[in-house]
Simulated assay, not measured.
Amino acid sequence: MRIIHLLLLLLATLFSKPAWADFNPTAYYTVDGESLSTTDAINDGEAPLTVEFRANPSGLDDSVLPVYEWRFVKEGSTEAYLTRYSENTTFEFLEAGSTTVSLYVSFGADTEPELISSIRVTISTSFLEMPNAFSPNGDGVNDIYRAKRNHKSIIEFHAYIFNRWGQKLFEWTDIDGGWDGTHNGKPVKAGVYFVLVKARGADGRKYNIKRDVNVLRDYTEGFAGGEH
């Protein structure tokens, strides 16, 4: 029995976390083309938001084989709805609300995973508005008809432009894209057109926007109705 006890102690020593081992869980993401990182929280994120989580281990050698667990827990719950078993993992957040992403590490099948640290990711509720005018006159100001820039957490988007006779002139699915005021490569006449937008937010909200679009060929700047 003494020999078995010594063997168990030896195994526990072999598979416990080495004193020199360290981890620095970090979330990496991009906003408006800028690469960002945090070890704490992402607040007011806009869906869809792709985040890479890295354990960033240090002090390990070939004799140490950590087992990684990234646990994703939604606010108001205690159970993980997703667990990833890898040193690094990437996840696309598509739903509004808060998720706590925690890194657990264990050293051996018989050891309990140890909580290293947690990162909180909060995705904002959705918001979408379309302007009522734009001035595609080539002056570099308000030349493209698109969703207003303060849109948030829109995960599905499809917009259509029609003329007064119901003919479809243009459509686009990239929320940051838009219409340049042309049809078949030629500028449309100044006047009133119509936009139909079908969209869905990360919070489940559905948008069905229908409104007039004024094409102002001779306008130069400062038209409030067309500001984005």
Rank of each mutant, 00 (worst) to 15 (best):
K210E: 14
L196A: 13
N184V: 06
S117E: 02
T90G: 09
E52Y: 02
Y193A: 08
Y68C: 05
G226D: 04
G177N: 12
P136V: 11
P187W: 00
S37G: 02
A19K: 11
K74G: 09
L60C: 05
G201V: 05
E69K: 10
A190E: 15
V73I: 15
S63F: 10
N208G: 02
L7P: 02
P18E: 07
N214P: 03
E171C: 10
W179V: 08
L49D: 08
E95M: 10
A47K: 00
T38M: 00
A202T: 10
E69Q: 14
L103S: 00
L115S: 08
Y81P: 06
K152G: 10
S124Q: 13
Y81K: 05
S117Y: 03
V197Y: 04
S37K: 09
F53P: 00
A19V: 14
P187H: 03
D40M: 01
A55P: 06
V67M: 09
I123N: 03
A12W: 13
G76P: 07
A55T: 08
P187K: 03
K74S: 11
W20A: 15
R120E: 15
V213P: 04
T99N: 04
N150M: 08
A199R: 04
L60N: 06
G222E: 14
S135E: 15
G201R: 01
Y28L: 08
P48N: 03
A147L: 05
N208R: 11
G226F: 03
F53K: 00
L14F: 13
K148Y: 05
F157L: 04
A159I: 09
L82Y: 12
V197W: 01
R54Q: 10
G140M: 05
T173Q: 13
T182I: 11
P131M: 08
G225R: 10
E69A: 13
P131L: 03
N163D: 15
E92S: 15
S16K: 12
A41E: 12
Y160I: 14
E87R: 13
S118F: 00
H5Q: 13
G45S: 08
A96F: 02
R71N: 12
S86F: 02
N24R: 05
V105F: 00
K168R: 15
R54N: 09
T26W: 00
G108M: 05
N150V: 13
Y219V: 13
N24P: 01
E227A: 14
E52W: 02
F107L: 01
D218F: 11
K17P: 01
D44E: 15
L10P: 02
D32I: 03
V31W: 01
S117C: 03
T39P: 03
G178N: 04
L169N: 02
P113N: 07
I144A: 06
T38L: 07
W165V: 12
T78Q: 12
V51Q: 00
N163M: 07
A55V: 08
I144Y: 12
E46H: 10
F72G: 06
W70F: 10
R149A: 15
D218M: 11
E75S: 14
G178T: 06
E129M: 13
F134M: 02
H151S: 07
V105W: 01
R120Q: 12
N163W: 00
S126I: 07
I123A: 03
E227L: 11
V197T: 11
F93K: 00
